[in-house]
């Protein structure tokens, strides 16, 4: 069972959350006309076997989007921040 330390609600069970997606990809600027940055953002992934930055949504709690650092091999949880603070 994964437990996530939501900055608002505290340590909670994974069942309260919905997995979002990879948080390590960067959305290109809206006026980016080259195809490759968009392909990399939408389709291509690092998919690491180890530490991974990812979005989770605290759907049954405060409903905030969070950025988690989690190890995809051991499921160990690292930092957990509000997505808005992570972007800043």
């Amino acid at each position: 069972m994964i437990r996530i330390n939501c900055p608002i609600c505290g340590l909670r069970s994974e069942t309260e959350f919905t997995y979002g997606e990879d948080a390590s990809v960067t959305r290109p600027a809206m006026d980016e006309s080259a195809a490759q940055p968009w392909l990399d953002y939408v389709f291509n992934r690092d998919n690491p076997r180890g530490w991974h930055r990812e979005y989770w949504h605290h759907a049954q709690g405060c409903r905030q989007w969070l950025v988690l650092e989690r190890n995809t091999l051991t499921h160990e949880i690292g930092t957990c921040r509000l997505a808005r603070e992570d972007a800043a």
């Binding site: 609600c9 909670r12 069970s13 069942t15 309260e16 759907a59 049954q60 709690g61 405060c62 409903r63």
Partner: peptide, 23 residues
């Protein structure tokens, strides 16, 4: 799936969570 012990969830406190998969 949260601690409801009397010294943790005290009068006046609240929490948002899932109960039977309902928020």
């Amino acid at each position: 799936a949260v601690d409801t012990a009397p010294d943790v969830l005290k009068p006046g406190m609240f929490l948002q969570t899932g109960l039977h998969s309902v928020a």
